[in-house]
Design a protein around this nucleic acid. Sequence first.
DNA 1: TTTGGTTAATAATTCACCGGA
DNA 2: TCCGGTGAATTATTAACCAAA
Lengths: 207, 207
Amino acid sequence: DKREDHDADQYDCSPTAEKTIDDILKGSPGNDERRALIDNLLRQDPWKAAKNIKNYMGRHNIPQREVVDSTGLNQSHLSQHLNKGTPMKNQKRGLLYAWWAKKKDEVAAQFKIAQSGMGAEQVEEAAGVSPRARRNRFKWGPASQQILYDAYQHQRNPTKEEREELVKKCNRAECNQRGVSPSHANGLGSNLVTEVRVYNWFANRRK
Amino acid sequence: DKREDHDADQYDCSPTAEKTIDDILKGSPGNDERRALIDNLLRQDPWKAAKNIKNYMGRHNIPQREVVDSTGLNQSHLSQHLNKGTPMKNQKRGLLYAWWAKKKDEVAAQFKIAQSGMGAEQVEEAAGVSPRARRNRFKWGPASQQILYDAYQHQRNPTKEEREELVKKCNRAECNQRGVSPSHANGLGSNLVTEVRVYNWFANRRK
DNA sequence: TTTGGTTAATAATTCACCGGA
DNA sequence: TCCGGTGAATTATTAACCAAA
């Protein structure tokens, strides 16, 4: 290969090498059960599995890019498979399902750990989220946006206090959407709502 | 700088250096008039200018990316400026208008040359289209798509003859949209409709 | 702080392409 | 000659800045 490794000594994946299910499942316990889940999904209707995964990603606001990075699947292919049911060979669907199997455990672990007083990022680490993966970008969830939107109608320039109030409301709503107690908000990881994000939301909205 | 020049000994622009109006206008005659046009546009309402440019790009199916490449403007900034009227400083708007001023002449030249029997690509070259610029990707125009869509209703798998027929119809429509005689179809450049493209359109549509 | 500018990143879409049957 | 698979490119949109008033 010609060029030196991009800026990316921070990524999980050699961009060149194909991934295998084992790469995705590496380490961590409980892999036998995951295998079973994967095989099971492979035998079922791909479109149903796609809808379930999409649903899960939506509920947890997981960026498609994370899937792309950790499975090595092609972004547009994945997008079409998930959103339109475009066919995907078993080999590749396996990677997708492996990612899902692992991700579900990671997310669960994150919320479990989040009870302790750790900050959101520490929680992610403690949960063993693949350490070399790129940190996800924050993304607003529909529930939070509704809250902000309602607030915006009433007041376009909220004070710091009002913003803090919104932060709490949003995080509560997000936890709710994920079916976890609001006290576990730090498990939201990169999607934890903060005052700056609320500030930015209003600033961008005003434009 | 750290990395060796990308795969791109084929591009016009050093990705690092800021562009100037002169870079864009370089060479070619008639630059005084272009200057005048640019200054004029800079004094007018940016949103009106944006609409005119957008309109022009639409009529000729010019990819936004070409503008980005040749002006050095940021893609999302350009997109927002053109589509939503997001503000852009004069310095940058100047680059945009310079591109436009030059492009209009190039396009006109292309259609003029296209009378001769040259193929579409030769026409572009002969017209002096910045030689080191990336070749644009083909893009269907709305007029052609309507034609194809109508044909699709009647027959999902057209024969080669039918396809050739559609090619002619489409190219005629495209020329028409640009206000030039159908005999100048080769001036369409990268947007010239061909049988393979029609074939692909149907193949993709059937999915 | 807020607005005026500006941008990296994300992801749906668009158009192609390839290996078989 | 078509279809099952795939993918590079394109671009609207999202969530951030940052300088300066």
